[in-house]
């Protein structure tokens, strides 16, 4: 009890320190992880047991500094092997950083007070296949220290929330991949966490499954929770993230609000019009980037805003009808590829 009270005071202090801005729930300071392929990968402070003949090392994460604020959905994006899972594993206390430190809810890594307030879904989760869905949630509820009566109730609520009420009494070995992902999400929400860490929550799921996970993530934000997730499926990330960090080869390439990262990069303008006379089309062909004519409709793509305005203005005089006008922003995928290519070229 005392520990909890002390914890909340300290947490409030850290929030006060950042008055004016939103409270940072995750902060990392120069987080670095070097994997050494040892017989025993055990770190005791500076002493490392090295029993292998050669010291083969791989840098998985290089000097990561990032902050995630309260109530936002933060996406850590990057290709396979970029260091996303390593970051999450360090934050969860599964592995230890080689250098650097991090704070979750204002507390150092591994702090039990903070752990009681977070939820975690690992990538491709696998759980005890001899337990039924309900037994599994009740077991994890015990690990969170949820009182017995409440455990049963929470398990039922969460099973309904992730759509597994009918499968609650089936052993997990009979669960499909999507069902495992959902029961995994349920266990991450058992303690009604303030912050939820999800590692590739949508990988391997069908479109419907992905949408369901997406909806739950958005719902969590509405409840005021912070969601930190990693993904390499950019289109899914684009739909839910408030802010993203782009990780490549263990380095953070860019971080910011999705709006800010992409808004300045309107790629082109797409205009679709009906009934444009042939003469006008001929004229446009020389001026625009692309022109497609199908039946009675013409689709024009131009890069400059002024050009787009000119075309739009001329439509009335030509007796044509505007069907659609669409300023096309760079997608996250295009931005991501540009980032990754740009740096690796440089």
């Amino acid at each position: 009890m005392n520990e909890n009270r002390r914890g909340s005071v300290r947490c409030d202090q850290s929030r006060l320190a950042q008055a004016g801005t939103m409270a940072a729930v995750v902060e990392t300071f120069g987080l670095t992880k070097v994997y050494t392929l040892d017989f025993l990968d055990v770190e005791h402070g500076r002493l490392k047991l090295r029993l292998s003949r050669s010291r083969r090392q791989r840098v998985a994460l290089k000097d990561l500094n990032l902050t995630v604020e309260e109530g936002e959905i933060f996406g850590l994006l990057g290709p396979n092997g970029a260091g996303k899972t390593t970051t999450l594993k360090i934050l969860m206390g599964i592995i230890f950083p080689t250098r650097g430190s991090a704070r979750i809810l204002g507390r150092p890594l591994g702090d039990k007070w903070a752990k009681a307030r977070l939820g975690f879904l690992p990538e491709n989760p696998y759980f005890y296949d001899y337990l039924t869905g309900r037994e599994f949630l009740k077991y994890y509820g015990q690990l969170y220290g949820v009182p017995r009566r409440e455990r049963e109730q929470r398990a039922n609520v969460l099973l309904a929330r992730v759509g597994l009420r009918d499968a609650a009494n089936l052993p997990l070995k009979g669960y499909s991949k999507g069902m495992l992902q959902r029961i995994g999400l349920a266990q991450a929400l058992l303690n009604d966490p303030q912050i939820i860490f999800l590692d590739e929550p949508q990988s391997g799921l069908d479109p419907l499954g992905r949408k369901e996970i997406r909806d739950i993530i958005l719902q969590l934000r509405e409840e005021g929770k912070t969601v930190f997730f990693s993904s390499h499926i950019l289109s899914d990330a684009e739909l839910v993230c408030d802010r993203v960090g782009i990780l490549y080869s263990g380095e953070l390439k860019d971080i910011g609000k999705l709006r800010d990262l992409l808004s300045t990069r309107i790629k082109n303008y797409e205009i679709v019009a009906r009934g444009v006379p042939e003469a006008a089309l001929q004229q446009w062909r020389a001026r625009v980037d692309r022109l497609l004519v199908q039946k009675n409709e013409a689709m024009v793509i131009v890069r400059e805003e002024s050009e787009a305005r000119a075309i739009l203005a001329s439509l009335g005089g030509l007796g044509a009808t505007l069907v659609s006008f669409n300023p096309r922003r760079e997608t996250l995928e295009e931005y991501f590829i540009a980032q990754v290519r740009g740096r690796s070229d440089g």
């Binding site: 594993k89 969860m92 206390g93 599964i94 039990k112 007070w113 752990k115 009681a116 977070l118 975690f120 879904l121 690992p122 989760p125 696998y126 759980f127 005890y128 994890y140 690990l143 969170y144 220290g145 995994g184 266990q187 860490f197």
Partner: peptide, 14 residues
């Protein structure tokens, strides 16, 4: 091996 330890370690236990 089956990485169930990941979810156990992330819970408030030592």
């Amino acid at each position: 091996d089956k990485k169930t330890i990941y979810t156990i370690i992330s819970k408030p236990i030592d």
